[in-house]
Structure formats: C-alpha cells, structure tokens
C-alpha cells in the first residue's frame, strides 16, 4: 500500500470530514480504500476465492466504520487503517484454520440410512425446473425472502436490513413461501 504524502493527506482529510458526518466524503474515502484493502488481502490470502476476498474487504470496511471515532485527525491515516486491516485478517485466518481443522474432506458422502427419503442427495434434488417455475409464481415478498434466506443463506437480521422489512414479517414470508412451494411441488409429483 505504498502511497504518496499527498494521497495520505487526502485520505486523512476525507476521514476527518467523515467523522464530521459528511456522507459524500465518506463514500469517496471507502471507494478509494476498497481496492487498496483488497490488494492487501490478496497479498496475504491469495488462495481465497474472489467472493471470500470481497467478504473480508467488507469486513474490514465495517470495522473501520465501527471504529471511526478512534482515528485521531492529528495522526497519519494509513497506519491506523492497516492496523484495523491486519487485525481483521488475523481474525479471518484464525477462523479459516478453525474451520479447516473441523472439516473432513470426503468424496463420497456416506449413506446413513437405506430409506430413500434419508438420501435425497443421492437421487438429486428433484425437478429443479419445476421448482424454478414455482418460485416465479410466488408473490414478490415471499420469493425475495426465500431467495435471501434459503438460497443466499443470509441471516434474518441481514435479510431484514436488505429488504427494509421487520424480522417478524420476514419469518412469515418465508413460512408462507415454503408452504406454497411444497404445495406446488407435490402437485407436480
């Protein structure tokens, strides 16, 4: 992250403005930082998938957001940013190691029960096209809720923030949507 003094001063000025509540300056600052942080993450975690790198970059920006009061305008900006980035990357590395330690690679998932219902993965996931058709028949709210929570595996909080609805309303939408999908799929069978 080699930067010139001018760029450093520019970033520090944007951060000072952001501390004062200037949203445009903040958006400009984060947009400038995202590729710099991405580069630092790629240097350290070159083996990660692009999506995982994006997630880590967003995690670092989120930590910057939560810690913005700790930036002292009288001090250089980049060392402050990089301390946050290093801390989040170290956390991420620890998570990665923990996950890897508990994962058991297996090419052939063992069959647990002979009953067909218990081995859906062995026989595929049913009629994917019919499921896609059934999804398009759902009301917009239910479809969106299922896409976010079941397909993209977002948490209730995340999905509620993304859709602008309450957690309760989201739960109802998912429940009704799943019921409708089950009904539609059973008629297809």
């Amino acid at each position: 992250m080699g930067r010139t003094i001018g760029q450093e001063q520019n970033l520090a000025a944007l951060m000072r403005a952001a501390q004062g509540g200037d949203r445009e300056a903040y958006a400009a600052l984060l947009s400038t930082l995202a590729p710099l942080v991405g580069q630092a993450v790629r240097q350290r975690f070159g083996f990660l998938q692009p999506q995982d790198i994006d997630d880590l970059v967003q995690d670092i920006l989120l930590s910057l957001h939560a810690s913005r009061a700790t930036y002292d305008p009288a001090r250089p900006f980049l060392p402050w940013l990089m301390a946050i980035a290093r801390n989040r990357m170290a956390d991420s590395a620890r998570r990665y190691v923990r996950r890897a330690a508990h994962e058991v690679p297996s090419e052939h998932p063992p069959e647990t029960f002979p009953a067909e219902d218990a081995n859906v993965s062995a026989s595929g996931y049913g009629d994917v096209e019919a499921l896609a058709r059934a999804m398009t028949q759902l009301p917009r709210g239910q479809r969106q809720a299922i896409e976010m929570m079941k397909l993209r595996e977002m948490s209730l909080k995340e999905a509620a923030a993304a859709t602008g609805t309450s957690v309760g309303a989201l739960k109802v939408s998912v429940h009704r949507g799943m019921q409708a999908l089950r009904k539609a799929m059973s008629t297809t069978d």
Binding site: A18, G20, G21, R23, Y26, L30, L62, H65, A69, P73
Partner: peptide
Amino acid sequence: LAADLQPVRP
C-alpha cells in the same frame, strides 16, 4: 455504510 454514517467525536 455511507448512508448509515453519523457524525462522531474523535
């Protein structure tokens, strides 16, 4: 994030 921004005192 920018839309969520509130002023903070260092």
